[in-house]
C-alpha cells in the first residue's frame, strides 16, 4: 500500500470519527436527524460542531507538535510537555482564575497565551547562544518544573474553594462546553503554528544524522529552532488555552504511526496531525458515551484509548522502531 493510500485511509478515519463525535453524547443523535427539520439539529450546530472542530484543532496541534519535537530532539520520549509551553500556558490561565484578573473566557485565553508566549520567548533566549537541541530540552524541562511549581503555589494561595475547584477543573483539560467563540479564538493561532511546523520536514530529516551532518546537508539549525519554538508554542499554547492541559496525544501518536508511515521525521508530520485529530475525536466521543451523570475527563479517555494501542505496539515491535 503506498503512502497516498494510507494517508487517504487516515483522512477517512478522521472524517468518520468527526461524524461519530457529532452523533455521540448523552443524547445520541443519528445521521437521519442531520437532514430535514429535526429540532436536535440545534444541538449539533451549536454544541457538537464547535466541540468537534476544536477537537480536530487541538488533536492536530498536539499530534504534530509531538512529531516535530521528537524529530527535533531526536528522542522518542519528547512531547509538548517537555518544552514547558503547556505548563506555562496553564500557569497563565490558573493565574487568571485564582488572582481574578482578566475575568471571563477571553481574559483567561489571553493570559494562557501570554504564558505560552512568555515560555517561547524565554526558551528562545536561553537557547539562542547554544544552538543545540540538548539545551533546548533542558531549558524546557526546567521551565515546565518552574511553571508547575508556580501553578501549585497559586492554587495553594487561592482566596476561596471555588477558585481552587475551577483551576483544578481547568488543569484536567476537556472539550466540555466549548463553543464557537473558543474555536474562533484558538483557530488562527493553531493554524499559524501548524503551518510553521509543516515546513520543518527537511531540517528534521537532516537532523536524524546528527547536528554536524545536518549542517553539512545545508540545514539551517538556527532557523529550525525558531520554527520549532514558534510552531509548537502557538499551536500548543492556543490549544491548552482553550481546553486546559491534555497530555498523551503528542507522545503517543507519532509512535502509533511510525510502523505505518515509516520513521523518517518528515513522513510523520501530516499523518501525526491527522492521527492526533482522530485520537482526540475518539477520546472525546468516549468521554460523552461513558455512563454516569458527568463526563469522563478527556485526558482520562485519551489514556484509556491510547495506552492499550501503545502497549500492544511495544509488545509487537519491541525496540525495533527506536534501535
Amino acid at each position: 500500500m503506498n503512502r497516498a493510500l494510507r494517508l487517504g485511509l487516515l483522512v477517512l478515519l478522521t472524517a468518520a470519527l468527526f461524524a461519530l463525535s457529532l452523533m455521540a453524547g448523552k443524547q445520541w443523535i443519528p445521521l437521519d436527524a442531520w437532514f430535514g427539520h429535526d429540532p436536535r439539529w440545534a444541538i449539533i450546530a451549536e454544541l457538537r460542531i464547535p466541540r468537534a472542530v476544536l477537537g480536530v484543532l487541538l488533536g492536530a496541534a498536539l499530534g504534530l507538535s509531538g512529531a516535530v519535537l521528537q524529530g527535533y530532539l531526536r528522542n522518542p520520549l519528547a512531547d509538548p510537555t517537555v518544552i514547558g509551553v503547556s505548563s506555562c500556558a496553564a500557569l497563565g490561565a490558573v493565574a487568571s482564575i485564582v488572582l481574578g484578573f482578566g475575568a471571563g473566557w477571553l481574559g483567561q485565553f489571553g493570559w494562557a497565551m501570554a504564558g505560552a508566549g512568555g515560555a517561547m520567548a524565554l526558551l528562545a533566549m536561553l537557547t539562542a547562544r547554544a544552538q543545540t537541541p540538548v539545551v533546548f530540552v533542558l531549558a524546557g524541562t526546567v521551565l515546565a518544573s518552574l511553571a508547575g511549581a508556580l501553578t501549585a503555589f497559586l492554587i495553594s494561595i487561592a482566596p476561596n474553594p471555588y477558585a481552587i475547584a475551577e483551576a483544578i477543573d481547568w488543569l484536567m483539560g476537556a472539550l466540555t462546553d466549548r463553543g464557537p467563540d473558543d474555536v474562533v479564538m484558538a483557530a488562527p493561532f493553531i493554524g499559524a503554528g501548524v503551518l510553521v511546523m509543516l515546513f520543518t520536514g527537511p531540517g528534521l530529516d537532516a537532523l536524524a544524522l546528527g547536528e554536524d551532518a545536518a549542517r553539512s546537508l545545508g540545514a539551517n539549525l538556527g532557523r529550525l529552532r525558531w520554527q520549532v519554538v514558534i510552531g509548537t508554542g502557538l499551536a500548543v499554547g492556543a490549544g491548552v488555552a482553550v481546553t486546559g492541559v491534555v497530555g498523551f496525544v503528542g507522545l503517543v501518536v507519532p509512535h502509533l504511526l511510525r510502523p505505518v508511515f515509516g520513521a523518517k521525521p518528515s513522513a510523520l508530520l501530516v499523518p501525526s496531525a491527522l492521527g492526533g485529530a482522530a485520537l482526540t475525536l475518539a477520546a472525546d466521543s468516549l468521554c460523552r458515551l461513558a455512563p454516569g451523570a458527568g463526563e469522563v475527563r478527556l485526558g482520562v479517555a485519551m489514556a484509556l484509548i491510547g495506552a492499550p494501542f501503545f502497549l500492544a505496539l511495544l509488545f509487537r515491535e519491541g525496540a525495533r522502531q527506536w534501535r
Binding site: 531526536r74 537532523l207 536524524a208 544524522l209 515509516g262 527506536w322
Partner: peptide
C-alpha cells in the same frame, strides 16, 4: 542515525 529507517531512506537524505 536517530531513527531506525530503511537504509535507502538514509542514503536519500544525501539528496536534501
Amino acid at each position: 542515525v536517530a531513527w531506525n529507517m530503511p537504509a535507502r531512506d538514509v542514503v536519500a537524505l544525501g539528496r536534501l
